[in-house]
């Protein structure tokens, strides 16, 4: 029997439910909680179930269908159901609990958007919202995404190679690294305004790649998944996907790309350099100091009783395409 919330608690609002209202709902669930029941509702309730409770005044982000060429090569990969992909997210800008981004990000504004490419390049570019889906031919890429927390998903991303974008910007000979930055907007992203929600990391979120990693054919600028434009909780309107690295490298909601001479700082490395490196290549032989990386739980369909623990592969199984980038490099030193 699901715990039902009586109608007289539901709040009367216009379409856009603002921040304070969401916090009221959190508080309500917390006061109902006893012996962790509150924590249960908070952390365990799926997006579907919470949508059932709160559907009255919720604004649901509207994604659009995309035109793209299908991925015919990776059809043997069992995909993670879309409902799980859009309801289980590490996106601390919208709360550090996995179900919070789906709940708190639905009124995120993606249009207008500006993505600037600058730095050591001959042709700095600015892309606007329409450019993101119209400027480059879109393709579907079914990739494994391996979180550093030792779970993984298989997601049919839609986007274009980062290499195409960078080639247009024409990096010069000084460009050795590429830096990325997420939007900083505490009004829209409550995790950036509140340390309690924001999970203790520094904002804006920054990431970086070596230029050869950025130019690798696998590296994707993604604007959609499962045939539609990205939902805010997945990093709308545009995000990076680097499938051979831990998921925290695949930075979301990007506003700036810079070509640099020197290695840029990256958010998780700043927080805990012993635990999160710059390279963050998926490596079953190099454990996180606090847990093993030799295996992972693959989230597909099926619930609690699914036997889904699998061996983690070096470079998340993309060694054929990327191992050559790291020849001669000590991967235990450069983790």
């Amino acid at each position: 029997m699901l715990i039902k919330i009586p109608k007289n608690f539901s709040l009367k609002d216009s379409d856009v439910t603002d921040e304070s209202v969401y916090y009221e709902r959190r508080k309500l669930l917390k006061t109902m909680g006893f012996l962790g029941a509150g924590a249960l509702l908070n952390s365990a309730i799926s997006n579907k179930a919470s949508a059932g409770f709160f559907s009255d005044d919720e604004v649901k982000f509207a994604s659009q269908k995309l035109n793209y060429t299908q991925d015919n090569q990776n059809l043997d990969l069992i995909k993670t159901p879309e409902q799980k992909v859009i309801s289980h997210n590490n996106f601390y800008e919208f709360g550090a609990k996995k179900n919070q981004p789906a709940e708190l990000a639905q009124s995120f504004k993606v249009d207008p958007w500006q993505l600037t490419i600058s730095g050591e390049c001959d042709n700095p570019i600015t892309l606007d919202y329409q450019d993101l889906t119209k400027k480059f031919a879109l393709e579907e890429r079914i990739y494994r995404l391996r979180c550093v927390e030792a779970w993984s998903m298989v997601i049919p991303w839609i986007g274009f190679p980062l290499a195409s974008l960078l080639k247009k910007a024409a990096p010069n000979s000084k460009a050795k690294y590429v830096a990325f930055e997420t939007l900083y907007d505490p009004k829209q992203m409550p995790g950036q305004a509140s340390r309690r929600l924001g999970g203790g990391i520094e904002y804006p979120y920054v990431e970086g790649l070596r230029i050869d990693e950025a130019m690798n054919p696998l590296t994707l600028m993604s604007v959609g998944l499962y045939g539609k434009t990205l939902m805010p909780q997945n990093g709308a309107p545009i995000r990076l996907v680097v499938p051979w690295k831990y998921g925290f490298k695949s930075i979301k909601s990007i506003v700036a790309i810079k070509l640099l001479e020197h290695q840029p700082p990256t958010t998780w490395n700043k927080l805990a350099p012993r635990e999160y490196g710059f390279y963050a290549n998926v490596n079953p032989n190099h454990d996180h100091p606090r847990w093993s990386q030799a295996s992972e739980r693959r989230i597909t369909s099926g619930g609690l009783f699914t036997r889904n623990r699998i061996e983690t592969l070096p470079f998340n199984g993309y060694g054929e395409e990327v191992a050559s980038l790291y020849q001669g490099m000590n991967l235990s030193k450069y983790y």
Partner: peptide, 14 residues
Amino acid sequence: DQLGADPVEAVIHF
């Protein structure tokens, strides 16, 4: 299967 995408994490935390 109503505990979200990672019910394992959910039951362990709870």
